[in-house]
Simulated assay, not measured.
Amino acid sequence: MAICATDILLRRNRCDAPALMDETPGSAFWYTAGANRAGALAGIVASATLYAILMRSTDGPRPLDVRA
């Protein structure tokens, strides 16, 4: 339900509800071993980018520095 509600807001109601319920390996929303590889990769890249930004501070203790 939340997927369709978000779809209505962001994509102007182009939700394909039958495709969301399709549990066959060839469906558009099929995950590998319970995880979406593209989503996992995006999370890893975003986390690494945020870490690099936070650790780049040169004036004073860094936000994630355990030695501070």
Rank of each mutant, 00 (worst) to 15 (best):
residue 56 R to K: 07
residue 50 L to K: 00
residue 22 D to I: 05
residue 31 Y to H: 05
residue 39 G to D: 12
residue 41 L to F: 10
residue 45 V to N: 08
residue 42 A to C: 04
residue 14 R to K: 09
residue 65 D to M: 06
residue 59 D to H: 10
residue 61 P to M: 01
residue 13 N to L: 02
residue 46 A to P: 02
residue 46 A to N: 03
residue 50 L to P: 00
residue 27 S to M: 03
residue 52 A to N: 05
residue 19 A to P: 11
residue 41 L to S: 09
residue 22 D to C: 09
residue 67 R to H: 09
residue 29 F to K: 01
residue 3 I to Y: 15
residue 55 M to I: 04
residue 47 S to I: 03
residue 39 G to F: 03
residue 8 I to P: 00
residue 17 A to S: 13
residue 40 A to G: 11
residue 49 T to K: 02
residue 62 R to I: 04
residue 66 V to Q: 05
residue 39 G to W: 04
residue 54 L to W: 01
residue 23 E to M: 14
residue 26 G to M: 06
residue 32 T to A: 09
residue 33 A to W: 09
residue 33 A to G: 01
residue 7 D to C: 15
residue 34 G to W: 10
residue 30 W to Y: 07
residue 24 T to S: 14
residue 24 T to H: 10
residue 24 T to A: 10
residue 49 T to Y: 02
residue 8 I to M: 06
residue 57 S to G: 09
residue 38 A to S: 11
residue 54 L to V: 01
residue 25 P to D: 03
residue 10 L to P: 01
residue 22 D to N: 15
residue 52 A to W: 04
residue 28 A to W: 03
residue 68 A to D: 07
residue 11 R to H: 09
residue 5 A to M: 12
residue 23 E to P: 11
residue 24 T to E: 08
residue 10 L to D: 10
residue 10 L to Q: 13
residue 15 C to I: 05
residue 34 G to I: 05
residue 68 A to L: 00
residue 66 V to M: 07
residue 49 T to E: 03
residue 29 F to I: 01
residue 49 T to H: 04
residue 42 A to P: 02
residue 40 A to E: 15
residue 58 T to L: 08
residue 16 D to K: 07
residue 32 T to W: 11
residue 53 I to Y: 05
residue 11 R to E: 08
residue 4 C to A: 15
residue 38 A to Q: 13
residue 23 E to V: 12
residue 21 M to F: 14
residue 19 A to N: 12
residue 28 A to D: 13
residue 60 G to M: 11
residue 9 L to F: 04
residue 13 N to E: 10
residue 52 A to E: 04
residue 55 M to D: 13
residue 45 V to H: 06
residue 8 I to D: 14
residue 25 P to K: 04
residue 17 A to D: 12
residue 43 G to A: 08
residue 47 S to G: 11
residue 32 T to I: 11
residue 12 R to P: 00
residue 42 A to M: 05
residue 4 C to N: 13
residue 14 R to V: 01
residue 46 A to H: 05
residue 65 D to N: 13
residue 30 W to T: 04
residue 67 R to I: 01
residue 42 A to L: 09
residue 42 A to I: 02
residue 67 R to A: 08
residue 51 Y to E: 02
residue 1 M to N: 13
residue 47 S to C: 05
residue 34 G to D: 08
residue 67 R to G: 00
residue 12 R to L: 10
residue 33 A to E: 12
residue 7 D to M: 06
residue 37 R to E: 15
residue 58 T to K: 15
residue 27 S to L: 02
residue 43 G to F: 04
residue 66 V to P: 05
residue 33 A to P: 00
residue 16 D to A: 06
residue 20 L to R: 10
residue 2 A to Y: 13
residue 63 P to Q: 07
residue 49 T to S: 12
residue 35 A to M: 14
residue 46 A to M: 06
residue 53 I to H: 01
residue 55 M to G: 07
residue 32 T to V: 13
residue 63 P to N: 08
residue 18 P to A: 10
residue 52 A to F: 00
residue 43 G to N: 14
residue 34 G to S: 07
residue 10 L to F: 08
residue 67 R to W: 02
residue 16 D to N: 12
residue 5 A to D: 15
residue 2 A to F: 11
residue 58 T to N: 12
residue 27 S to K: 03
residue 41 L to V: 13
residue 21 M to Y: 14
residue 24 T to V: 06
residue 2 A to S: 15
